[in-house]
Design a protein around this nucleic acid. Structure first.
Lengths: 154, 154
DNA sequence: CCGGTCGCCGGGGATCCGCCGGTATATTCC
DNA sequence: GGAATATACCGGCGGATCCCCGGCGACCGG
């Protein structure tokens, strides 16, 4: 499962997490490689499934979703399909983590207003009891690790 | 704050969330616009700050971080700088949301193993009491809304 | 030694990007 | 009304970039 990445691969991954649209020529320059060598490595990372895609980061406030919240859902039943269908239909649900513990799901949702958030939570509450926390601020932008775990001294 | 985006802008945003590395020519084709018109709109969205950046999505399991967890931290003090410094230094912390409620912070962390996660939680517990839930699965890949809030019928 | 593999480099044609001018429609101002 | 301005789009051109291919050197294993 560990795909045996060397330091150059990690440098490429780091660069692409910082600037996912960088030109291949420039990418090679940044990791001290020719453009074609960097491209070979990038294509390999893509075909191995290490890189699963590229996406633009959007300022949710500027597109009309200024309210961010974490909703935890305690779902007593075992039939999860109806919930999953709702989550897929509702684009306001940004992330859905199924976890251990009392609260089976931890969701990150965006809303246009408190009234909007209230409606979303009501809809989710049809499936179980919810706990909602509004987000003041998101300290870190989403990012990923830049080096292997180094389990000897993690 | 709402930057007055029309349907074409939303189509561009949707396309870039699906494939952030699409060529401008192809982007124009996908939203039924010439390449230069699509480029103009994209640059406008970037300069308005609607698009804040581009990044590659990485399969954390394949790069040696198979364990994902949500850690909530109840932080009694008011001096947050030491905590923030730790969060910045620790690349295992993927996301940091400061929220309402008892648990001031909700963190999403990645680890190479349970032992690694244990160490991370121990480190965080120096700042307050923590609640940790391991993630079974991440149902939705990260995504954003594809249309304006439509608060009339949200 | 020698054939095979691997990673990297460089070239050349096709494609794309960035910039410019031009057009059509709507708005504003005199 | 009529003209000037603004906005959004298109198309084209030079230069940069991408994609594909062949070649080079290092590193095995026989």
């Amino acid at each position: 499962m560990a795909e045996n990445l060397d330091a150059t691969d990690w440098a490429i991954l780091a660069e692409l997490q910082r600037d996912g649209r960088v030109a291949l020529t420039e990418l090679g320059r940044r990791v001290s490689l020719s453009a074609s060598a960097a491209t070979d490595r990038l294509r390999r990372l893509e075909s191995l499934g290490v890189i699963t895609g590229y996406r633009a980061d959007i300022d949710l406030t500027k597109v009309g979703y200024p309210v961010l919240a974490v909703v935890r859902l305690k779902y007593p039943g075992s039939r999860h399909e109806p919930l999953h269908r709702l989550l897929e239909r509702r684009q306001e649900v940004l992330e859905c983590l199924r976890t251990t513990g009392e609260d089976c799901y931890t969701l990150k949702v965006a809303a246009g207003s408190m009234a909007h958030l209230e409606r979303l939570v009501d809809e989710l509450a049809r499936f179980g009891s919810t706990t909602t926390n509004v987000v003041y601020s998101q300290t870190l932008p989403y990012r990923g690790p830049g080096t292997p775990p180094d389990e000897g001294r993690p």
